[in-house]
């Protein structure tokens, strides 16, 4: 026991200490403070608050608006992710086949990522404006629509419009990453498959897919978290409206914390969100681990 204590190297711990402190302050502290506040009546501008146990969780889990926001978030995530992967993946496969000017296409595709979200949101708001917007007026002038389509206020169009914008925004990121993965596949494998008479689909299924599935899997994990937590695009374009049709869980939590200033309740929502996303991550990473094991 004495020998073990002697072997313990304090020096390396002291050098690691600053990094540990920063990680603690920036990551662990917010999580634990949220966990603590979620069990209190903490109000944004009132200094005094009480410990109330799990009452905030009970209030949130019995609020129909929370579940409406939760299901909106699920649909938002599934539709956006599916669209982003389909468009991003297809674009990557197409650009990978391009012989000349690949860099130009790639640059053009990632333009949405070059702009701050506020610029993108306000630009789309302007393009889709129901009175003077470019797109509604163009559709009327071309005779496609009889009246100005209301992309951001019609209850049957507003959510689909936001999902379209999110797909447009997120697909390039998938494209760039998948393209990078595609470029690591040895060409001789395709040549050997062609000699053996493999069809394009067989080459894709037996060569391309196994090489890129781990990258795609990781992208799905990251994009799921980002899309589920996405706040700015929806908030800046519709603010969660009209009639809460586009209110997702992050917007619900924001309204709770910054609108009604009930930080305790808002923290309970964010803790529930964290638990849900951790659960999703566990499922994804289990699948990814299985794929990696299969590859070995």
């Amino acid at each position: 026991m004495k020998n073990k204590r002697k072997q313990f190297d304090y020096v390396r711990w002291i050098f690691v200490l600053p990094a540990l402190v920063i990680v603690g302050v920036l990551l662990i502290y917010p999580i634990f403070s949220s966990l603590y506040y979620s069990m209190t009546t903490k109000h944004l501008i009132k200094p005094a608050y009480d410990f109330i146990g799990l009452a905030n969780y009970q209030a949130v889990l019995t609020d129909p608006e929370f579940f409406q926001a939760f299901f909106t978030s699920i649909i938002w995530t599934v539709c956006s992710l599916t669209g982003q992967i389909l468009i991003g993946f297809t674009s990557a496969l197409a650009i990978n086949r391009v012989k000349h000017g690949k860099g130009v296409y790639r640059t053009l595709m990632i333009i949405p990522w070059a702009f701050p979200t506020i610029v993108i949101a306000l630009s789309w708001k302007w393009i889709l404006n129901g009175v003077s917007g470019f797109l509604p007026n163009l559709l009327v002038q071309l005779g496609i629509c009889g009246t100005l389509p209301q992309f951001l206020s019609d209850n049957s169009m507003v959510f689909i419009t936001l999902i379209f914008i999110n797909i447009w925004f997120g697909a390039p990121m998938i494209m760039v990453n998948v393209l990078s993965a595609l470029q690591t596949i040895p060409q001789d494998q395709y040549e050997a498959a062609q000699i053996d008479g493999a069809s394009h689909f067989q080459q894709f299924y037996h060569i391309t897919m196994p090489h890129i599935k781990v990258v795609v899997g990781l992208l799905i994990v990251l994009r799921t978290i980002w899309i589920f937590n996405n706040f700015d695009i929806i908030y800046l374009i519709t603010g969660g409206g009209p009639a809460d049709l586009t209110t997702t869980v992050p917007i619900y939590a924001y309204n709770m914390g910054w609108g009604t200033k009930m930080l305790g309740k808002s923290s309970a929502v964010t803790m529930l969100l964290l638990l849900f996303l951790l659960l999703i991550c566990v499922v994804y990473f289990t699948i990814l681990a299985k794929w990696e094991k299969e590859d070995k």
């Binding site: 404006n129 129901g130 009175v131 003077s132 209301q150 951001l152 206020s153 519709t238 409206g241």
Partner: peptide, 21 residues
């Protein structure tokens, strides 16, 4: 009213009048 006004804030509202709409 324009149907988009269901989402309008003060500046959206005022801008319509400013532009003569």
């Amino acid at each position: 009213s324009p149907k988009d006004s269901v989402n309008y804030a003060v500046l959206d509202q005022a801008t319509l009048y400013y532009q003569g709409k």
